[in-house]
Write a protein that binds this DNA or RNA. Structure first.
Lengths: 194, 194, 194, 194
DNA sequence: AATGAATGAGTGTTCATTCAT
DNA sequence: TATGAATGAACACTCATTCAT
């Protein structure tokens, strides 16, 4: 279906590039249109307004990531294995697309509250996956009995997000994918000795 | 020096209130001036520009928090005790000032990248404290040998920040201070059983 | 010729309906096309541009009205009888087509000056009829000798037009056709007693 | 009071000039500001929005005209004398200000329905004066018993308005003030002989 | 120190019209 | 004839900052 609307993805890809290059507040619709190789008005044949470009951008890039994630973790046995997969996939998704990393970690966060709440709606799918892993892990006895699932989910997501943001703010200088194992170990065992 | 300029804090407090009430993008300089009971032009006798109000706001509110924190943890022995103090102080600081919580967790993040980088500069003091606790803990043998201090710091800060943001986005409905112990335990021991 | 092009009238009728319903400035070409059941581009096979639709609309609806009027008044003897016919026909034309009344009295007047001048061209036929009635009436001695024909024509047309516009602006609540006799009497004898 | 705000009238006068010269749809706010010798933003210190300029324009120019009219006709005895005053004042107001005539008779009518309804509100004062004259005239026996006041008012206003509009559309070539007596006579005695 | 009137740069969106099919 | 996707020009309004008083 969307292959039939090549301009839809064309515009979204242009938006990622323009925002990564110029920053959120310097990414006018006309600039995105130019980068996409279409007229300004054409944007509005595919998107309701500028905000809709940004939401759609996030939905397309993260939405399908989350869907695929759901499939992939089914093949894994333990909570730890599943979590390892989530972390490494998350890291490599953004490591493989530097522009997308800049846009999602830095630029899109400058949007107004309303837009960010819509982005959070999309992220809920991700959080649900994390909570699912945790709940199963508790039932199987792998994870601590009495674990506060919401708090644990906040720790996992907060840690991943902070790690990625720090990496992006450091101009993506080091190999974030290589940190997956260490991050997993921290989340699973904490910082205490023994 | 600043005690001699009561309007300085008067304007900062007005800014917190106005931003918490109206949101970042609806907090015009004229609105802040009105709330502070001064003329628009007076703002510019105390602040270089609008951005300077926001940076000063963060510096005043968080800066003194960080300074006091540095003192307080000196009295604690173990890394865990120190971390416990950081978490509970952080939580209670924001639990005690709902407006400040809204401003720092939601509104100020809509600012442009440049401003956020300056905010990060101020936060560095906080991160340094965390890294100090971790380094000491490793040396004393309390914390894992070979712990990646930067990663661990990112986990701690990311977890605290995500926990607070979720709490603010849920309209601060529950008692976040009560979560301190659970969060500490998660960070120290992880999610795994045993 | 135009009977061979049913879409011509189809588009004009659609325009009347769309404009009456949505107002002049909310009557986009695409909306008219949709109402007419044709594609946007098809409009331009029958009309030079949007303005041409509106002029043609006026020409079709008022033009044939004026033509028929010319025929009808031939059967009448006196200037007063002729004028009576003009007034009652004018009122009933618009009373019978509420949408047309809205379009000609309110919406079309929002058009630019150029279009309105073209509409005035079409109206000239109407004004000519009025002046003819007046000139004949003067010659026959029925009307005042020395009557300023242009002024009298302006009074007659201005009165009719204002009466209709007021009626439309009052949502066509009352029976305008019933006012014909009173309006005629006013124009013929004025407001003075005796 | 308004002398203290010289820019208010300065902007209104600029608007009349710009609209008369460039036409309604080519009168951008920036053009009006330039003509008034102020910055674009200054406009919005005195007017809520562009529409507000136009309404205020009409209110200032016609509103005070109507107020003064109310005073002036008190000195006249008969309905005919009062009507004579209204007509000649109306004509001379617009004959004395060619730009104002263009703006009120041609350009302002291209505005949207909403604005025109607000203009009509202002005009109501004028119509009330006319109806007052008519009602008094009937009571005194000067005017026809059983005269339909609303219809008669519509005739008077419609005639005046049509006369002025025709004059403006003919580039104000002739002396409209000279027509006052003839128009009065027509309205008072009608077109019929005897 | 304090005021507040004035400034002027900057942009998302609509819609009449075209033209390849 | 008929289609409808694509075009691109055009503009009101906000608000951080200044400066004469």
């Amino acid at each position: 279906m969307k292959q039939k609307r090549p301009k839809y993805m064309q515009i979204i890809d242009a938006a990622v590039e323009v925002i990564a290059e110029n920053g959120y507040h310097q990414s006018q619709v006309s600039k995105i249109a130019k980068q996409a190789g279409v007229a300004d008005g054409t944007i509005y044949l595919y998107f309701k307004n500028k905000e809709d470009i940004l939401i759609s951008l996030f939905k397309e890039k993260m939405g399908q990531f989350i869907e695929r994630m759901e499939e992939d973790i089914k093949d894994k046995e333990t909570a730890k294995e599943k979590l390892a997969l989530v972390i490494s996939k998350h890291f490599s998704l953004l490591a493989d697309d530097h522009n997308l990393a800049i846009v999602t970690q830095l630029e899109l966060r400058q949007s107004n509250l309303e837009l960010r709440q819509k982005i959070n709606e999309i992220l809920k799918g991700y959080l649900t996956i994390l909570e699912g892993i945790l709940t199963e892990g508790i039932q199987s006895g792998e994870l601590k009995d009495g674990l506060d699932v919401r708090l644990a989910r906040q720790m996992i997501f907060g840690t991943i997000d902070e790690t990625v943001t720090t990496w992006v703010m450091n101009d993506q200088k080091y190999d974030i994918a290589a940190l997956s194992d260490s991050v997993l170990e921290l989340l699973v065992s904490g910082i205490h000795n023994k």
